[in-house]
């Protein structure tokens, strides 16, 4: 094995890495936002809203992410055409991002829900007693505390998402893994590039999980 060809290829791999990180950051932000909305729906007194959110969650939790990515890649352009009536070209990046946001939201929802439920009931009463509305109570009192408690779990889920971004390979998006695969094939050194990509994923995930564990211990005290 000869890893020397990797060094000149680094700029190209870095572009792939940026795509991976963009998917990760936007996916986490969108997923947490949608997941929080779903969690609030699941906990609401409105039975219809709660039911819709519960169905959403159990639906997305029972199908593979790869299926969602593939389906959305085919379906998002169709759906957009129905809505807008014109042909809107949708890149693989956008359809993958939509897939990640909608899929991860189901998992983030459960984390946020548990986080909200872990806040003592009295906090809600105290905020109401001060004249806060439901929105203010959630925004100023409950969610800030809940997010603090669930930060480690949210980060853990984000590490999983980081690894799962490699599944965009299926629609040919040039993320880190795909960039490494295609360069390896071109240069006739597929093994070296694959191992290198694996190492990069490993180092990032490993370091991040270590950091999360550390954080968890600090928060537990």
């Amino acid at each position: 094995m000869d890893f020397s060809a990797i060094i000149p290829a680094l700029p190209g791999l870095w572009i792939g890495m940026i795509t991976t990180l963009e998917l990760l950051v936007l996916g986490v932000c969108g997923g947490v936002a949608l997941g929080t909305a779903l969690a609030l729906m699941r906990l609401s007194h409105n039975k219809t809203l709660a039911k819709i959110a519960a169905t959403y969650v159990s639906y997305f939790r029972s199908i593979p992410l790869l299926l969602v990515i593939t389906w959305f890649y085919f379906a998002v352009p169709f759906v957009l055409r129905w809505i807008t009536g014109v042909d809107t070209p949708v890149g693989a990046f956008s359809s993958c991002l939509v897939a990640f946001v909608m899929f991860e939201a189901a998992y983030f929802c459960e984390i946020v829900r548990a986080g909200i439920q872990a806040i003592p009931r009295g906090q809600m009463g105290a905020a109401y007693a001060l004249g806060m509305t439901y929105g203010q109570t959630m925004r100023l009192v409950i969610l800030p505390q809940a997010f603090r408690k669930m930060t480690p779990l949210l980060l853990q889920q984000s590490i999983i998402l980081f690894q799962d971004t490699s599944l965009v390979y299926t629609v040919g998006l040039m993320d880190l893994l795909n960039a490494a695969r295609s360069r390896g094939d071109i240069l006739g050194q597929p093994h070296e590039f694959l191992i290198f990509a694996g190492l990069v994923y490993f180092v990032i995930s490993f370091t991040a999980s270590r950091a999360v564990k550390h954080l968890q211990k600090r928060l537990a005290v």
Binding site: P120, Q123, Y128, A129, G131, M132, T133, V141, Q145
Partner: peptide, 30 residues
């Protein structure tokens, strides 16, 4: 109801200060 409650002070058995805010913030947020 929020308006009515803002004119009625309440003190709870378990205090229910907001633990993520400082004392000053607890006193001023509402």
């Amino acid at each position: 109801l929020p308006r009515l409650r803002s004119r009625v002070g309440m003190v709870f058995q378990h205090f229910e200060l907001f633990p993520h805010l400082t004392i000053t913030e607890n006193l001023t947020i509402a």
